[in-house]
Design a protein around this nucleic acid. Sequence first.
DNA 1: CAGGATCCGGTAAGATACTG
DNA 2: CAGTATCTTACCGGATCCTG
Lengths: 123, 123
Amino acid sequence: MKPRHPHRSEDCRAVSAVLQRVGDKWTVLVVSMLGDGPMRFNELRHAVGGISQKMLTTTLRNLERDGFVTRTVFPTIPPRVDYELTGLGRELLTPVMALGDWARANIDRINNARDRFDAAAQS
Amino acid sequence: MKPRHPHRSEDCRAVSAVLQRVGDKWTVLVVSMLGDGPMRFNELRHAVGGISQKMLTTTLRNLERDGFVTRTVFPTIPPRVDYELTGLGRELLTPVMALGDWARANIDRINNARDRFDAAAQS
DNA sequence: CAGGATCCGGTAAGATACTG
DNA sequence: CAGTATCTTACCGGATCCTG
């Protein structure tokens, strides 16, 4: 009687790939910050906090590559670059936020399980 | 007029931490396989496909540590170990599946964006 | 201001061999 | 069967310095 949805290997890989992008160290933070509207590089850097400029650059490049953000350069002096979520990026935000809400709601349970496991492994 | 939900730094970190666990290379595959019911080690290994026994072991240990799966040892010969999702694990499956569905639905758009970006970067 | 270039350390990930 | 132990490789993430 189980629903038994297929688990097509190919699909699972695609899901896994997307989750790996989303799950890398900074992506979610950056995307959720951009959820409030376009931001400049250093503005983003400061808002996220604790990210190096290198990692912010690579994170943004990857997001741009996958079509989640647009990069707009204003050829002024000093230069100015705006990053903004695309439609795809905003759509991504929905399931990610859902997972985020779940995480917030259950982080205590996870931490408790972790503490119990570590305590049990102590012996 | 934006909703402007808070982005409490602490919360975002927790979310990010959970996403990193969920987003590591094999976790989603393993959890989704276990979504159909308990499985043994090698059964899981074969079902996932392409995972080394070492990575499967560490993935399962981490999932056990965080309270997502239980590990049941039958002291028979040959030994038998069943892995099964906990309640927490099954709850996790819901938002993860939602993200998975989104990923399946949009993988083409992502790949297209990627191809376009790479083609543009060619010059 | 926004980043490119470079170096370095830590850890993830795989292959292989061995064990209860 | 279900791991553990060990080794090697690869890449991630950070720090620092430099440029238009």
